[in-house]
């Protein structure tokens, strides 16, 4: 069985926060306690979609935003992606209070570095969610943190009010529509020694923060980031799985990993968002071009044609043979 351990849960609360973001609360269906977790952890939510006579299971990672100490319920916030393959739309449109769903045990790929003297959080949009859990964890132990949160405008600023109410001195909010920008170079310049930077948000923001901090001389191990990618649709393609000795078709709306699973082949995974490295798969032969989208392999590995991350990457061409 691949992926983290699964937990049967019931949807106990759904709260629309604004035009784009809705919060979901899950409790264990058997009434028991959920595992504790560390701030920054995510859970993979299984969405079984039987609408329109189909039967598709999507599995998307979402950061846990509830208090890591609270074992009674998990909460996540889901931003609606009208352009995506439908996972977030399914959550927004189909999921109702009382529905039974399956989530994974928490997995943390964006952990706090507990050696840090100070934690500097940089959030963009829905990237605020892992920080909500990390802030609760740090508050429990009197940790030193500061949040800089950029969002489009006040109407779309999820959790801005509660953050500024509870932590007025540690929370700094920037609205794009008001031309407010994080003054990153100055912000970094003023940090005490031993500060760690954590950034979660759109790819452009992550790249900007990593590049700026590196340019200012920050050590690589003091900069932490997390961006989950959603698989993207693309042209259908055919793949031979050499170990299983079968040929499968990857449809326009499904990922390579989903197609492998649909064929009944157990393939390893954890995050399903191109970050954790678990689904790394050896390429045995190919004629065509890879569409690599993961954060795991480096540029040289992408160019080599030896490996693919089937959770988010695709292929266009005649022949693709995988060691699976």
């Amino acid at each position: 069985m691949s992926g983290a351990e699964k937990i049967a849960v019931t949807v106990t609360d759904i709260v629309p926060l604004n035009d784009l973001v809705t919060r979901f609360e899950f409790k264990r269906t058997d009434g028991g306690l959920l595992p504790t977790f560390s701030g920054g952890a995510h859970t993979v939510v299984e969405m079984r979609d039987t609408s329109n006579g189909g039967d598709i299971t999507r599995m998307n990672p979402y950061s846990l935003m509830s208090d890591p100490m609270d074992q009674s319920a998990y909460t996540i916030s889901v931003r609606r992606d009208d352009e995506g393959r439908g996972g977030s739309l399914f959550m927004h449109n189909n999921v109702k209070v009382g529905d039974q769903m399956v989530v994974s045990n928490p997995v943390n790929l964006f952990s706090l570095d507990l050696l840090a003297k100070k934690h500097l959080f940089l959030a963009g949009g829905i990237g605020i969610t892992p920080f909500l859990a990390q802030i609760k964890q740090l508050e429990r132990f009197n940790g030193n943190w500061e949040l800089h949160y950029a969002c489009r405008n006040a109407a779309l600023g999820s959790y801005v009010d509660e953050l500024t109410d509870h932590y007025p001195n540690a929370t700094h909010v920037y609205y794009d529509d008001n031309d407010q920008r994080i003054d990153l170079v100055n912000l970094l310049d003023g940090q005490p020694l031993g500060t760690h930077i954590y950034v979660c948000g759109p790819k452009g923001m992550i790249d900007w923060v990593r590049k700026t901090a590196a340019g200012e001389g920050w050590p690589r191990e003091s900069i932490h980031y997390e961006e989950f990618l959603a698989p993207q649709s693309g042209k259908p393609f055919e793949v031979k799985l050499a170990v299983s000795n079968i040929v499968i078709q990857v449809g326009e709306q499904e990922s390579l990993l989903e197609a492998i699973e649909r064929a009944g082949v157990d393939a390893p995974y954890l995050c399903r968002g191109g970050a954790c490295g678990q689904c790394e798969t050896q390429v045995i032969d190919y004629t065509g071009n890879f569409i690599h989208r993961d954060h795991w392999l480096d540029d040289a590995e992408h160019a080599s044609g030896d490996k693919i991350m089937p959770c988010v990457s695709r292929f266009e061409g005649k022949v693709l043979v995988l060691d699976r």
Binding site: A4, E5, P35, N105, P106, V107, L270, C276, G277
Partner: peptide, 11 residues
């Protein structure tokens, strides 16, 4: 090390 880094809660 690769194996150990990916050991997950409950497993």
């Amino acid at each position: 090390l690769k194996f150990l880094l990916s050991i997950q809660q409950g497993a």
